[in-house]
């Protein structure tokens, strides 16, 4: 256990709060997947830089107005410039950061998750929520969660029934429904 190691550290005159944060970081570190390299940081910074530049260009088109009569573009322009400056700063200082997480095979799971979300959104208006919701449960339990078929079916049925009761009868919220 790391407790012994961390407390064995010299409790010096230094900033206890900072030390504590390092300790907390260390605690959390053990549960985290390996950090992504500098490429992650650079790509992230470039993306935000792009957002800032696009924002600035569009804001320019909305009309900046004057300080006495600020136009619709003035504020987005100011914010976009801040985004650009900060992104450039991140490009400079961010390469050594270790706060990113490498994508791995497990990253395919969220991708499947997103796909089920999108499918649910597409199907609800035409099919009602019951069948797509059941399908989502099955995918998540059986294929993403590795549950047995028996518990998958049981939990899925129970969940959909519970939602039916909760939304349509308990809370009386209109949801598109088939039955």
């Amino acid at each position: 256990m790391s407790d012994e190691r961390t407390t064995a550290r010299r409790v010096g005159e230094g900033d206890i709060l900072a030390e504590l944060e390092a300790e907390v970081a260390h605690e959390l570190e053990e549960q985290r997947p390996p950090a992504g390299g500098p490429a992650y940081q650079v790509v992230a910074a470039l993306v935000t830089l792009g957002v800032g530049l696009a924002g600035a260009v569009l804001a320019q088109g909305y009309g900046l107005g004057s300080l006495a009569r600020p136009g619709p573009g003035l504020w987005p322009m100011v914010v976009s410039v801040v985004v650009v400056v900060l992104s450039l700063a991140l490009l400079l200082v961010g390469r050594g950061l270790t706060d990113s997480e490498r994508f791995s095979r497990a990253s395919a799971l969220p991708l499947v998750g997103v796909a089920t979300f999108v499918a649910l959104g597409l199907l609800i208006p035409t099919l009602g929520f019951e069948i797509p919701a059941f399908a989502l449960c099955v995918v998540w339990l059986r294929f993403l969660g590795g549950e047995s078929w028996r518990s998958t079916i049981a939990v899925s049925l129970g969940t959909v029934a519970a939602f039916y009761a909760l939304f349509l009868y308990g809370l009386r919220i209109p949801l598109p429904h088939l039955f």
Binding site: P125, T126, L127, G128, L168, Y169, R172, I173, P174, L175, P176, H177, L178, F179
Partner: peptide, 20 residues
């Protein structure tokens, strides 16, 4: 209003996809 919506739902509990 909640009761009203509820009643609407009860009425709509058949036939195709429906909200109210």
């Amino acid at each position: 209003a909640a009761v009203a919506t509820g009643a609407a739902l009860a009425l709509s509990a058949c036939g195709g996809v429906s909200t109210t």
